[in-house]
Amino acid sequence: MTATDTGVHAPPRPRLPVPSLRTDRWWVPPLLTVVGLSIFVIYATFRAFQQDYYWVGDYHYLTPFYSPCMSNGCLEGAAHFGRFLPDHPLIPYAALSLPFLLLFRLTCYYYRKAYYRSFWLSPPACAVPEPHTRYTGETRLPLILQNVHRYFFYAAVIISVINTYDAILAFHSPDGGFGLGLGNIILVTNVVLLWCYTLSCHSCRHVTGGRLKHFSKHPVRYWLWTKVSALNTRHMEFAWITIGTLILTDLYVFLVASGAIADPRIIG
């Protein structure tokens, strides 16, 4: 099959001289998506395998890219849940959480739209033809596995609890008492936004109440569904904001841990 006998050129459709007549800059959003996601993937990969500058011992700041730190290579204070993973350059210190977080975002309904459009050009924009001669969508392997998104959502909830625990432990001063610095504000903001992204997930919307037929018989779940639905309308925004806050939070911990900057302290 060729591009001339399928799609918008397939007879007996109207025969127009060009594949798309769009005159706006439709290529800008997919281009920005490629740039944004590429920056995140490159930065996250570098940091996940760097195995350094992830923990500020004085203030107990732990970057989310190393949470939970479970490798034998983890610094003692950073390992809140024990150390048992082998210390190897190819095994990230947070090897038990990072794959699930990656798969949570990879199978996320918003990110699917983003990378199907921008990386796979399927389609690059509405009413702009895709370059592929065949299309089966998510009907077969490997894309049919997108249907297990809900399990990565459950994992993301557990990891968000761990991130919250880390952020609470970080209210720490060098003398062992309560402490508060700019890093705490950054860590807490990041965790709050991670919760917003996680709870606005479409699978969360389904399990809290979307799967029901009779809302009136389940008032509590209906109430939960309305709250998750309200968050869900901002899922795309939270997806991008949390990419930004994850990078900023990690970068801040990196800079403080490496001694490049000092953490401005408010208390302790």
Partner: peptide, 15 residues
């Protein structure tokens, strides 16, 4: 009805 073909790129919603 081929729900699996949909890759949720939201053009239907846009238009």
């Amino acid at each position: 009805h081929g729900l699996g073909y949909c890759n949720i790129t939201k053009c239907c919603t846009e238009v």
